[in-house]
Amino acid sequence: MKRPRSTKRLRLGLLVGTTSALLAAGTAGILCAQSRYGNYAPAALGQLDQAVPQALREDSTFSVSAFPLYPSELAAGEGQQETNIFCGQCHSTRYITTQPPLSSAAWEAVVSKMRKTYGAGIPESAAQKIVQYLKIHYSPK
């Protein structure tokens, strides 16, 4: 088992991931030329972005601001860091906190689906820790 990465590394992971998505998109052909992808930025709750007067350019690029990321409050405990890092590769961990309490078998199936069906790069040891963590904190009491 490698040492768990720090939160700082996680953010870096997110950046690298976004960049690699861009590169992968580029290999798909004309994508890079026509789009920008997966730009997210931390945001504060309750903040209302009005359509501020701004100088929009009359060029052919139609863009929106970064999609806001809100803090996701995973329960503290053994396995939280692995859950943050590995589950957070593809999606925010809010996918976990918004679920109803799921049985141990259901969580095992979810993690297995992420690895086998979606090809998520989660080492076996980390996967076990994640399943254990989800069972303890996100299953019916």
Partner: peptide, 15 residues
Amino acid sequence: HLDGIPNAIDLKNWR
């Protein structure tokens, strides 16, 4: 479904 949602599309190149 996937997190790489476009933030910008250049219509000059989009087809």
